[in-house]
Nucleic acid binder design. Structure first.
Lengths: 245, 245
DNA sequence: CGATTACTTGAGCGAGGTCAACGACGGTGG
DNA sequence: CCACCGTCGTTGACCTCGCTCAAGTAATCG
């Protein structure tokens, strides 16, 4: 059932193999490496499990480690001086967290669920980068993808109505699920209304009202807590694109 | 007067030297190269001048070239299906435009003023990257900085009031000017109210009203069109941070 | 099973959007 | 040199979307 059960391998190697298997464009740091390289990384990397709501790192911490989220969900947040927070992104199984060339992390990384992580120290990473130059190119690819996603989010927050933002968010969950190659009729949505609001530049009440509206229109279902099913994908897309009116 | 007058060098080399001179953290692609490498790039790169409002490239164009903005101002924009546009960033002299590992550019790049650009084909760039590995690291640095700036912009658009956004924008102009090592009492602001609004997720009327309010409070002056002087920096900072009330 | 946190729903209000009119500026052609 | 026009900026009046405040319900966890 769980694809991460191979007992002989570290989680990072397992994650990379999962990536290979699903042929994903995006997931995983080590996708381009051969098994010899994976073995080497396996011997270097620390695997660990952390509980829900744990902080992987905080904004301002020295950026000495890089993580792969093997299993679970995380949010990346920035804090305003007045205490309000902005979620700059969510992370899913297979995603890399905390890579930066800056001296300190520019945001908090906090887990939404109990998660399995694979940890690599900066020194180890730099050594690997030297040994496997394709990895450096991979880092750049990941950074460009992240940048493009953040720009898209900027468009959503800056120019779309409240319901359009929530619709766009739901669609991005589908995309993330597709990336992980999971059957996507019912999506996991472990983030709270407040998390979603802080991601979309809305209040939690507005997010709640939007989701209720979608439910009443029969566009979505929420069979259990923290699960959504998108029933009318087309309607949500039209709303997100502004192609409805 | 103009620091770009050295007649024997290509613009790119000149730009790099300017970067060296000002010791900037951010500006310029070729900062880490020695003069031999600069000479080599000089022989490769195409210099060009383009008029105001020209498109350097459009969203969806094959991403076959990379540009350095030697002199002038540009905006990077994304278009929504319904025609609304979001400015995802402004670019200033010394900045690199259009580097991506994606097959096509993910946004439009449009000049705000007549500008001098330095153009490098993807093939040439890749060859340079192979010859000067430090350049690859530099590209990653630039990407990380851009990502961090975009996340900051996301916080501004998602969580700040209209006036706080405009204040934050003005402060970012100071920062950009500082980066270019220009005396910053009076800033160049070649973007229209509409450009600023599309950057901040506001309407042009709201931007105009905010600037008028700042002027009436004596916080800024606009001696001529497309120039601002920040008179009360502290007040603007407090407003941007939300530390005023 | 009580306490806490998450979610929903309602009522009222205000920041900012919309629509409209007007003035300033800069280029263009007579 | 001036009349004309298009773009840009300002200001006002009005209205709406989403925020705020508040109360109540549902889920979760010791």
């Amino acid at each position: 059932m769980n694809p991460f059960d191979a007992p002989r391998q570290t989680e990072l190697a397992a994650a990379a193999q999962v990536c290979d298997r699903c042929g994903s464009r995006v997931a995983g740091l080590c996708q381009p490496l051969d098994s010899a390289a994976l073995d080497e990384i396996s011997s270097e990397a620390q695997q660990m499990t952390m509980p829900a709501h744990a902080a992987v790192f905080r904004e301002g911490d020295p950026a000495g480690r890089i993580f792969t989220l093997v299993d679970g969900f995380a949010k990346l947040t920035r804090l305003l001086p007045d205490g309000k927070q902005q979620v700059v992104g969510f992370r899913f199984a297979g995603d890399v967290i905390g890579y930066t060339t800056l001296p300190t992390y520019p945001f908090d990384a906090e887990l939404l669920t109990e998660s399995r992580l694979c940890r690599l120290d900066r020194g180890q990473l730099d050594a690997l980068l030297r040994r496997y130059p394709t990895l450096e190119r991979r880092m750049l690819d990941l950074c460009v993808q992240e940048l493009t996603a953040t720009q898209e989010q900027l468009v959503t927050v800056g120019r779309r109505s409240a319901e359009a933002r929530v619709a766009a968010f739901l669609l991005s969950l589908v995309e993330a699920s597709r990336r992980r190659n999971r059957p996507c009729s019912v999506l996991e949505m472990p983030m709270t209304r407040s998390d979603i609001a802080d991601f979309l530049g809305l209040t939690l009440e507005t997010v709640s009202r939007s989701l209720t509206a979608f439910r009443k229109r029969g566009w979505i279902r929420e069979p259990v807590h923290h699960r959504v099913e998108l029933v009318n994908f087309a309607a949500l897309s039209a709303l997100a694109e502004g192609t409805d009116d």
